[in-house]
Design a protein around this nucleic acid. Structure first.
Length: 564
RNA sequence: CGGGGAGUGGCGCAGUCUGGUAGCGCACCCGGCUGGGGGCCGGGCGGUCGCAGGUUCAAAUCCUGUCUCCCCGACCA
């Protein structure tokens, strides 16, 4: 591709409102442009990278027997009523000229299940894996960070259809294989992490996470362990228990309504206290959640344990049903107590907890002896907690893919059934599996960029070679560059050719901003010796120059292989 | 939805407080020089100052309303 023909609007300055690196560089390198909040156009260079991600995904899904199809973006709203998702805030609703109610699909479980409910009759029709690349429309509450979270984006979603849970396990395992290969091939740093199955009842889920600063999720990582912090579990760091406060007694703590104040007053570690967090579940039950004073409640884990949503109790509810806010605790509380796993029984020294009376705490508190409780893991893990003896670290990451065992969540309301060998009707067991190519591209930018710009992994680069010519028209440099460009194109090497009239600095800066793996420079300096300079985008050392005389394409191909 | 910020040529910004002919850098166009890291000289094009209404002799500037965009949080199959 000649740059004189290419729409590649590079910018020296970052857009003033951009924050995330992928946003800044995506715009500066001329990959994407914004049309509105969460609405982005992919310009030619960016679209090439996007398509490269798409093609990798396609090849690996085909390899596990997936079949590509295409379902509509616009769908009848009635279909979504059957699954209870028609009224979701995220769903764009619209009407046609006749007033028929339609929606823009935010995903395609409904439509694919609808079809399969008609097309699958027998166990002989199963299993199947279907997938497509299609625009998803979501009325996001807050789009952000360029193409990272948008209101309209292309997603690869695949769906598996099996006769039973064992079949689903197999389809799921196939997707694990395909996804692992996909993300290996992209060249990203990635982790497959355990993830929340949510309230929709799924029996298993993983997310594929690409660590980078702009990530919206946090992952807990340790050797051999990776989990979304929403579900991560780890052994807590030990806390020094105050032996001096082992004897049960009341302590006066006037006005000390915070963990910090009480711990400071008593001269103990915050972790020696019990933090009481009263919540009211959606069904109206008041529960006192108790974690170590230096720990925080993990809302996802708590919600999953409760089996329903919840909200923090109001001040009134706390005062009326437990005690004065700031001084509440499990001892003597007239509500169920949910005690976090990290609070060990009979810890030497005993715990400090609110006494449910003003300006008063209790020391020497021992779970079981002093209060009844239900034990569960509800705390948020923290960096330094141990998994298998190793300390975890917590990193922000982009979710680039997920895999989810749906079960019969959709086949049941949509009546997707089949007849088994005995002629009895069974529900199809489903899985759903997503990948966001745009996020793969954004993650690659985030993970590889340096102070000069993007440094694509080869698999995602819009072009493999960035050919720069230095020299005015009608010079030997131009002539040599034209010849080389023609040869590279002929050899099938994807090349962007900077044939513009600009100066060297400008061209080199743009090449580094765009980030193609290999830069070739035709200039007077080496052309006199019949050579073309080669420079890898990553690393600063110049590569051996390439002789032009005998044809350069094989040498360029060899260089590219080395860069891989 | 709550909090904060911003809308002035393609991009980045000044001007707004204190009303008086809309500016700067980059980019772009023309001519020339230069020709290996965003170079130099000269000459140009380009803006209903987000939109609507109001105040005023006069509004980018003051008032009211409204739209859009960004950031943080809530939210995120």
């Amino acid at each position: 591709m000649r740059m004189t023909n290419l729409l590649l609007p590079t910018e020296r300055q970052a857009p003033s409102d951009a924050e995330a690196l992928s946003h800044i560089l995506g715009v500066r390198a001329g990959l994407v442009r914004q049309l509105g909040t969460g609405l982005w156009t992919w310009l030619p260079a960016g679209w090439r990278s996007h398509q490269r991600a798409v093609q990798i995904v396609r090849e690996e899904l085909d390899a596990i027997g997936g079949q590509e199809l295409l379902m509509p973006l616009i769908q009848p709203r009635e279909l979504w009523r059957k699954t209870g998702r028609a009224d979701f805030d995220e769903v764009f609703k619209l009407e046609d000229r006749k007033g028929s109610e339609l929606i823009l699909a935010m995903t395609h479980e409904e439509s694919v299940t609808f079809h399969m409910s008609q097309l699958v009759r027998s166990y002989r029709d199963l299993p199947k894996i279907l997938y497509h690349f299609q625009t998803k429309a979501r009325d996001e509450p807050r789009p952000r960070a360029g193409v990272l979270r948008t209101r309209e984006f292309i997603m690869k979603d695949s769906y598996s259809f099996d006769r039973d849970a064992a079949g689903l396990d197999e389809s799921y395992a196939k997707h694990v294989v395909a996804y692992d290969r996909i993300f290996d091939r992209t060249g990203l740093e990635w982790y497959r992490v355990e993830s929340d199955v949510g309230m929709m009842g799924g029996s298993g889920a993983h997310e594929y996470m690409a660590p980078c600063p702009a990530g919206e999720n946090d992952v807990a990582l340790a050797p051999g362990y990776a989990a979304n912090v929403e579900v991560a579990s780890a052994d807590p760091q030990p806390v020094p228990m105050p032996a001096a406060l082992a004897a049960p007694a009341e302590v006066t703590t006037p006005g000390m309504a915070t963990i910090e104040a009480v711990a400071g007053h008593l001269g103990v570690h915050r972790g020696a206290l019990l933090k009481a967090f009263p919540v009211v579940s959606d069904s109206g039950k008041l529960v006192l959640v108790v974690v170590r004073g230096d720990h925080r409640v993990n809302e996802t884990k708590l919600r999953n344990h409760l089996g329903e949503g919840f909200r923090p109790a109001s001040t009134e509810e706390i005062e009326q049903q437990i005690g004065p806010p700031g001084f509440i605790g499990p001892v003597g509380a007239q509500v169920p107590v949910l005690l976090d796993l990290a609070v060990a029984d009979g810890a030497s020294g005993g715990w400090v907890a609110g006494a449910n009376r003003p300006d008063t705490h209790l020391q020497g508190v021992e779970p079981g002896r002093d209060f009844a409780f239900e034990r569960c893991d509800v705390r948020a893990v923290e960096a330094g907690d141990l998994v298998g003896g190793a300390a975890i670290r917590i990193e922000p990451a982009i979710e680039v893919g997920n895999i989810f065992k749906l079960g019969t969540r959709y086949s049941e309301p949509l009546g997707a059934t089949f007849l088994d060998e005995s002629g009895s009707e069974q529900l199809i067991v489903m899985g759903s599996y997503g990948i966001g190519p745009a996020r793969i591209v954004a993650a690659a930018i985030e993970q590889t960029a340096d102070e000069h710009g993007i440094a694509w992994p080869r698999a995602l680069a819009p072009w493999q070679v960035h050919l720069v010519v230095l020299g005015k028209p009608d010079t030997p440099e131009r002539e040599a560059a034209e010849g080389l460009y023609a040869e590279l194109v002929e050899a099938g090497i994807e090349t962007v050719y900077d044939d513009r009239a600009g100066g060297a600095g400008e061209k080199f800066a743009d090449a580094e901003l765009l980030g193609c793996p290999l830069r070739l420079t035709v200039g007077r300096r080496t052309l006199e010796d019949g050579l073309v300079e080669a420079q890898a985008r990553r690393g600063s050392e110049s590569l051996a120059p390439i002789p032009l005389r005998e044809g350069a394409a094989p040498a360029v191909e060899a260089l590219l292989r080395e860069l891989a």
